[in-house]
Structure formats: structure tokens, C-alpha cells
């Protein structure tokens, strides 16, 4: 999604009522984040809304990007937020061989997850299509990609083929490099 370097458009302040709505939406999408939400978006803070190309809106607090959203898709955290609260999101893992492709912006394909180095949830905690997942890499501590699943994890295991995430936010992409001033 952010393969090219991007520059932020107009910056505007978010209405406090809209900010409350964002807060509840974030907690709704990421229930595990609920205890930390005051740390990420304090109650008495002023969020900024930045317009990015391709109808992406970015929510930032004190020039720190926090969440982004493409139209009415779910709100997706910036990777720095993911790094700060890694346990609060659904996580799956990819093998070592897939890292370099992910970091150059390729679509994440199923074999990277199903192979030996990859990690998918057990059958009692399958993730559904459309859920936001954080992708971690084999042998690395930090996450390298966050995006929306295009295929449920059960389907991934069965098919072992096809695209899993095609428009995510990965380390070193335009959004990662974006500086707000």
C-alpha cells in the first residue's frame, strides 16, 4: 500500500467526539489493547488527522503516527505502535526466506506462513478473513508487517497457495519513513 515514499497532505485536528469514537473503535477491533489505550491515546489529548494518498487517513498524536485507515476498512496500527505493544494483536509468523520479499513490499503469500519457519495459530484459534494481523519473522523479535488477512488461516493451511496480505504496512515503506512536521 505504501510502496512509494509518500508525503502527508493536509493536517487537521480531530474533533473530540470523533476522537472518542476512534478510541472505542480501536478498543473494539483490538480488545487486548484496552488496558493500554490510555497510554496510546490519552483521554485529554488532541489527535491529528492526516490525509495520505489513496484515501488513507492517518491518525497521529504529537507528530507520532499511531493508526491508519483506508476508507472504512478497519483501523490498523502503525508498526511503531505494534512494536510498543506487541502482545496486543493477533500474530502469525513467516519463515526467514520470506522476510526480504515482505520488506521490499511484495504480497505475502501462503507458503511463507505454512513452511517450517512460519507460524499459524492452532485450529482452536483460527483467524478469519478480514482480520488485522501482525506478521512476525522467524528469528526476529519485532514485527515486520501489519495488514488485513485476505484469507482465513484455516484456508491458508488447506490451500497453501495464494495471497494472504496484499496491502499492508511493512518496515521501511513510505508510511514507516513518513515524517510529520
Amino acid at each position: 500500500m505504501f510502496k512509494k515514499d509518500i508525503s502527508a497532505g493536509a493536517k487537521s485536528k480531530v474533533k473530540s467526539s470523533a476522537q472518542r469514537a476512534i478510541r472505542t473503535k480501536v478498543v473494539e477491533t483490538y480488545p487486548l489493547l484496552a488496558p493500554h489505550i490510555d497510554e496510546i491515546i490519552p483521554k485529554k489529548s488532541q489527535l491529528d488527522l492526516l490525509k495520505l494518498p489513496d484515501r488513507v487517513s492517518l491518525y497521529a498524536l504529537d507528530n507520532e503516527p499511531l493508526f491508519w485507515q483506508h476508507m472504512d476498512d478497519p483501523i490498523i496500527p502503525h508498526l511503531r505502535v505494534v512494536h510498543a505493544f506487541p502482545t496486543c494483536f493477533s500474530r502469525i509468523g513467516i519463515d526467514r526466506g520470506a522476510i526480504r520479499f515482505v520488506l521490499s513490499g511484495a504480497t505475502l503469500m501462503a507458503p511463507g506462513l505454512t513452511s517450517k519457519g512460519g507460524r499459524l495459530p492452532e485450529s482452536d484459534a483460527e483467524l478469519q478473513e478480514g482480520e488485522v494481523v501482525v506478521i512476525e519473522a522467524e528469528g526476529k523479535e519485532e514485527a515486520c508487517l501489519v495488514g488485513q488477512l485476505k484469507m482465513g488461516t484455516k484456508e491458508i493451511k488447506e490451500k497453501n497457495k495464494g495471497a494472504v496480505i496484499d496491502s499492508g504496512h511493512y518496515l521501511g515503506d513510505g508510511l514507516w519513513k513518513l515524517t510529520i512536521d
Binding site: P35, H36, D38, E39, I40, R80, H83, A84, F85, P86, I99, R100, L103, K140, E141, E142, C144, L171, G172, W176, K177
Partner: peptide, 24 residues
């Protein structure tokens, strides 16, 4: 009482977490 955010060090050259520098 609540767990704090993790502080992650980022590389000053390529801005990635240092473990990903090899791909930068």
C-alpha cells in the same frame, strides 16, 4: 499498575529495528 509500552531501539541509519538492518 498497567504494563508500560516497550521502548524499541531503531537503527539510526536505516530507521528499521536493528535486527532488520541486513535487509535494508
Amino acid at each position: 499498575t498497567e504494563p508500560q509500552a516497550r521502548k524499541v531501539t531503531y537503527c539510526g541509519v536505516c530507521t528499521l529495528p536493528p535486527e532488520y538492518c541486513e535487509f535494508g
